[in-house]
């Protein structure tokens, strides 16, 4: 494989590589897809257009970077609008394909106009102290991110709650679904009582749930669309403190 010798050739290689990565790397592996594929969205189309439109010495580096990003954003939007106009769904494949075509067209135009620039990669010299400062800075940013993105213990006095829910079973089954969500800040034991058509209630429990955990049951019914009442009590107190009622069955349920 020949090494690209101009900036526009590099743009073409990178655009192709980004398309390939999008096709090959599963979308769940964001760690790889972000650095490998996002340049096609945020930099390459704009850079190709800037290079095509402006002669090499016309822009300062900062101006070239600014316009490249702005044009790339605009290209992403225009491509999206075009897809919408032609009733094509805005999914990855057509959107990427359109951006790649746009990038190739702009790069070709730039080449035709003689605006391609030879590649001259020069890393700025870094003194040891500067390298050390950069390393410490990166470590601090990583530390800030780890601390910032970690859920911490709740403040003193944070209020928890308990949830009781009751819905008709999905798909027209003659049954109800009842459930409990424990949003308390500690393990809690519950008892659930469900009565159908005001008859003797069915009891469930004790149900011990960790914070954030949930419990549910599907209860088959004999009667067609009866009145269903449910109540929730804590095992310690046995006092009902949450209640749910199903009177009208005209409600759609997706799942229990």
């Amino acid at each position: 494989m020949r090494r690209p010798r101009t900036d526009l050739a590099l743009v073409l290689w990178l655009a192709l590589a980004a398309c390939l990565f999008v096709a090959l790397i599963p979308s769940s592996v964001a760690v790889l897809r972000v650095p490998l594929c996002l340049p096609l969205v945020l930099a390459l189309p704009g850079y190709a257009l800037v290079t095509a439109a402006f002669s090499p010495g016309e822009l300062r580096t900062a101006e070239r970077v600014t316009l490249s990003i702005a044009f790339s954003i605009a290209a992403a939007m225009i491509a999206g609008l075009l897809l919408e106009l032609f009733r094509v769904r805005l999914t990855t494949a057509p959107w990427m394909a359109l951006l790649t075509v746009f990038t190739f067209a702009a790069a070709w135009w730039g080449n035709v106009r003689g605006h391609a620039r030879p590649l001259a990669m020069r890393a700025p010299p870094i003194r040891p102290a500067q390298a050390g400062a950069l390393a410490v800075a990166l470590a601090l940013i990583a530390g800030a991110a780890v601390l910032g993105f970690t859920p911490l213990a709740p403040p003193k006095g944070t209020q928890g709650t308990s949830v009781l829910w009751l819905v008709p079973a999905p798909h027209g089954r003659n049954a109800v679904c009842v459930g409990v969500i424990n949003e308390q800040l500690h393990d809690t034991s519950y008892e659930v009582s469900v009565s159908v058509a005001r008859k003797l209630p069915q009891q469930f429990g004790p149900i011990t749930l960790a914070p954030g955990a949930s419990w549910s049951r599907v209860i088959p019914l004999v009667l067609r669309r009866p009145l269903v009442n449910a109540s929730l009590s804590k095992t310690k107190t046995s006092v009902s403190y949450r209640s749910a009622v199903l009177r009208d069955w005209n409600i759609s349920t997706a799942r229990c």
């Binding site: 709650t161 929730l232 749910a244 199903l246 009208d248």
Partner: peptide, 10 residues
């Protein structure tokens, strides 16, 4: 009457 209490979180 006619309405359901589907979710009770207090």
């Amino acid at each position: 009457r006619g309405a359901n209490v589907l979710y009770d979180a207090g």
